[in-house]
């Protein structure tokens, strides 16, 4: 009996909650990436609004450089340090129109070229809990313990990646990923968590679309 309940809980974790996602792309210019060229993925400044979570940036970094159509990704911190202070939150250019001025600063273009970075991808947005409810009670006694009830909540993950082409010194376009998820934990003796991993789904969607967008194979 206990084994069956544990297996049910494990299955719940694997199944996850209910999710719906939407992916949108806006292209302003043709893209493509040559052998030896790379991209760098950075979080937008928290000085200007909602900066994406470090965990999400790490996730996109990992997923963009995996799979058959993977891209070369330059290490983000090393790149920001090499261009210090020009990509710090307060100093980073706010639009692609400021790219020529950034690249004209002494040493900046040389350091970018030395790292083979062709595209900067700026990610902003966040994951928020939008609503929730229900109740669950747990008790333990001499004869054993258990829980009874149901609790649920909804998460919204909304992220935007803006792609700047450093070679063309222009805004190549953007990719938007929105994921809505409902997580439920029903409990009849043991809780059965059905968790919607919205941030992870947004990361996966965003990374896949970025690979196609930058390689120019999305259209």
């Amino acid at each position: 009996m206990a084994r069956a309940l544990l297996a049910l809980a494990a299955a719940g974790l694997l199944l996850g909650g209910c999710m719906s996602s939407r992916l949108e792309e806006s292209r302003h210019a043709a893209t493509g990436i040559a052998e030896g060229e790379s991209v760098v993925i950075l979080a937008r400044s928290y000085h200007k609004g909602k900066a994406a979570e470090e965990k999400l940036i790490d996730c996109i970094n990992r997923r963009v450089q995996s799979g058959a159509d993977r891209l070369r990704v330059a290490p983000q911190q090393e790149f920001v340090d090499a261009l210090f202070p020009w990509l710090e939150p307060r100093m980073a250019p706010q639009s692609a129109e400021a790219l020529p001025a950034l690249l004209a600063r002494p040493g900046v273009a040389e350091r970018i070229e030395a790292r083979g970075v062709r595209y900067i991808v700026w990610v902003d947005g966040n994951t928020e809990k939008s609503s929730g409810g229900g109740s669950m009670g747990c008790a333990i006694g001499p004869g054993g313990g258990g829980c009874l009830g149901v609790t649920w909540w909804e998460d919204d993950a909304s992220y935007k990646a803006t792609i700047w082409d450093l070679q063309q010194q222009s805004d190549a376009g953007s990719v938007n990923a929105k994921v809505h998820g409902t997580s439920v934990i029903p409990a009849l003796i043991i809780p059965l968590p059905l968790i919607a991993r919205t941030q992870s789904a947004a990361c996966s969607d965003m990374a896949g679309q970025l690979r196609h967008f930058i390689a120019g194979t999305d259209s």
Binding site: F84, P85, E88, P89, R90, M91
Partner: peptide, 9 residues
Amino acid sequence: RDAAATIAV
């Protein structure tokens, strides 16, 4: 780092 960037620039 923010203060350092401000001073440098």
